[in-house]
Design a protein around this nucleic acid. Structure first.
Length: 603
DNA sequence: TCAGAGTGCGCC
DNA sequence: AAACGGCGCACGCTGA
């Protein structure tokens, strides 16, 4: 099954199957001396709320792999195992989040430190589209072909020797991967540029893993009846928009008579058909993209109706109809999957359902509620990306503004319009937001124009967009220089980028300039939020607070109402401490709210 | 008929 | 010369 001269330890991996408490006691004693162990589990399925552990595999160097047939060990006899896993032995896992969740559900929560080979490999390959399966790692790092056919076998029946052999190998191989990955993570540390701490980034991820695992187990509570009422309203609004759309289309049909086959068979969800219909009504569009339609909405009611319809049907399809399907039958809560290295920048990604993209609309967010007797405590970093830009670029004016606690958007508005700060209008400030957020990643004038219109409702001519762009970089010369520095790297053909914390992103091909501008910022934001989660996980021990969601620069907790004040203090402290480590001397501002729901606005 | 690329848009 | 980045999901459409 496995042939390798290089890894004699993996040739004929021997194992010891434990089926009684007595055997377990002896086996655990034999493992006690080792400072590291490979840990893996086989389960009856993938859901830690409904499926259960079947086998726990523990590998230590130079010993048979211990395979614990957990159902054979009476729950009252699992104390020793629980104590064993709670010891500070280094646990080497592959996708340890999964094992952590099942072990935790079984009352066998493993304690740090962890070394997760999957996270480690992603830290090394961030930005590349590499597979992260154990099979791939075995192949690339050990030159071994791993047979995973047993992975999907039936683990609820009596175990076959193939299953046992497979299970033992999965744990044993972790011990071989570990030193290789450590060496790779450390190698980058010795490069001359300094501050290259890939091992530290990997350890940040390892420390974050239990917080993420627990966050998934905790899930979020949706007020279903409120949600359904909202859904009904959205649906009727959508249908109203659709009706308007069809009436308006008929009204415009004088021009459409050339294409009679289109008049009543247009699918409003088809960009192709909509584009053809708009063009045949002599509306000057080259695509039906939002950015092209928004400026026309003022002049054409049909476009307004189309945009309204699209918005509402988007929310209906992606959220209103789908979220209730994700309510877990056992917990009654929504448990998405978070991938802590899901984004190339180091950010989390989240799916099933995508809680990171829930509409901001208060009507939507107030449906996400704290459990009875509990409050939601949520906090987000104020303008974290702009503060990071101020920190990285060293731009004097930005730094001064932040240190004096000024409103950077107002400042930008004043600088680009030439007005005094006191005369800056609300619209000027919205314009400035578009400018600040857009231009820091190198947006061009054309995009700035449509971005300001679409996202901030500010209409600009192309000339104005060009002029504002020019003035922005004159006003923030440090930002312009920072861009120039990165541009030089870009021209040199550099293929990787680092955050201040050392996180690296790689490119297989030539990166785009904007990607090189973005990664140090978005990546550091991820570093900071993850550090905050790690700090938080420590201080929340013993409290009633639960981590329930994180959205890039925001952290949501749920806790008994009586604790809310204390918990919000802890959350604030952790987030500020995490950001301060990298942003100093730029001040860190965290906005914190305690409320009954995600949308509530109390405190 | 079904996988997959493309379009479009929700969030930060 | 010019260039915002990072996601996941639903949908219509294409081509084998």
């Amino acid at each position: 099954m496995l042939v390798s001269k290089t890894y004699p330890n993996l040739k004929d991996v021997t194992y010891h199957l434990i089926t009684s408490t007595k055997e377990l006691e002896i086996a655990l004693r034999s493992l006690e001396q080792s400072s590291i162990l490979g840990l893996d589990c086989e389960t009856t399925g993938l859901d830690p709320h409904t499926h259960t552990l079947r086998l726990i595999q523990i590998a230590v160097p130079n010993q048979p792999v211990i395979l614990i047939d957990l159902p054979q060990i009476a729950p009252c006899d699992r104390g020793l195992l629980q104590q064993f896993l709670a010891k500070p032995t280094l646990k080497i896992t592959h996708n340890g989040k999964f094992d952590w969740q099942f072990l935790t559900q079984a009352g066998l929560q493993p304690s740090a430190p962890f070394f997760d080979t999957q996270l480690a490999y992603r830290v090394l390959t961030a930005g590349l589209k590499t597979s992260l399966s154990l099979q791939t790692l075995a192949q690339k790092l050990l030159n071994i072909e791993l047979d995973k056919t047993q992975q999907v076998s039936d683990w609820s029946k009596p175990l076959t020797s193939q299953q046992l052999q497979y299970a033992a190998l999965d744990a044993a191989i972790l011990l071989e991967l570990y030193p290789i990955l450590v060496k790779k993570l450390e190698r980058w540390q010795s490069l001359p540029a300094g501050n290259l701490q890939l091992l530290k980034i990997a350890q940040l991820e390892f420390h974050c893993m239990p917080a993420v695992a627990q966050m998934e187990l905790n899930g979020m509570l949706l007020d279903l009846s409120r949600w359904q009422r909202l859904g009904a309203k959205l649906e009727s609004d959508r249908d109203t928009a659709l009706q308007q759309l069809s009436q308006l289309r008929i009204a415009g049909n004088a021009q459409m008579s050339l294409l009679p086959e289109m008049t009543d068979t247009i699918n409003p969800n088809s960009p192709q058909q909509v584009l053809a219909a708009l063009q045949s009504s002599e509306i000057p569009v080259s695509s039906t993209h939002q950015k092209e339609l928004v400026p026309l909405a003022k002049h054409y009611p049909v476009i307004r109706a189309l945009l309204d319809y699209r918005h509402l049907s988007k929310i209906m399809a992606t959220f209103a109809d789908s979220l209730p399907k994700h309510i877990h039958p056992v917990t009654g809560r929504i448990h998405p999957t978070y991938y802590q290295l899901g984004a190339r920048s180091g950010r989390f990604s989240c799916r099933n359902p995508p809680l990171q993209t829930i509409p901001r609309d208060a009507a939507v967010r107030t449906c996400f509620i704290a459990a009875p007797g509990c409050q939601m405590v949520r906090a987000d970093y104020s303008q974290i990306e702009l503060r990071i830009v101020a920190r990285l670029s060293g731009d004097a004016r930005m730094q001064r503004a932040y240190r004096k606690g000024e409103d950077l958007h107002r400042l930008t508005a004043a600088l680009v319009t030439g007005k005094a700060i006191a005369d800056v209008s609300e619209e000027d400030r919205r314009l400035a937001k578009a400018i600040n957020f857009g231009l820091i990643y190198g947006m061009g004038a054309t995009k700035l124009q449509s971005y300001a219109e679409t996202k901030y409702g500010v209409t600009l001519s192309l000339e104005q967009a060009k002029a504002f762009r020019k003035r922005f970089f004159e006003a923030y010369a440090g930002v312009a220089e920072w861009h120039e520095t990165i541009k030089r790297n870009y021209i040199r053909g550099i293929k990787e980028s680092r955050t201040l914390a050392g996180r690296r992103r790689r490119w297989a091909d030539k990166p785009r300039l904007a990607e090189l501008l973005n990664h140090p910022v978005q990546g550091l934001n991820a570093d900071i939020t993850k550090l905050a989660l790690v700090k938080l996980n420590k201080v929340l021990v013993g409290t009633g607070a639960k981590l329930i969601c994180t959205v890039h620069d925001e952290i949501l907790l749920e806790c008994p109402a009586a604790e809310a004040k204390h918990i919000s203090y802890l959350l604030l402290r952790c987030m500020i401490a995490a950001a301060r480590k990298f942003l100093h001397p730029i001040p860190v501002v965290v906005d914190i709210k305690v409320s009954a729901s995600w949308g509530g606005d109390e405190t």
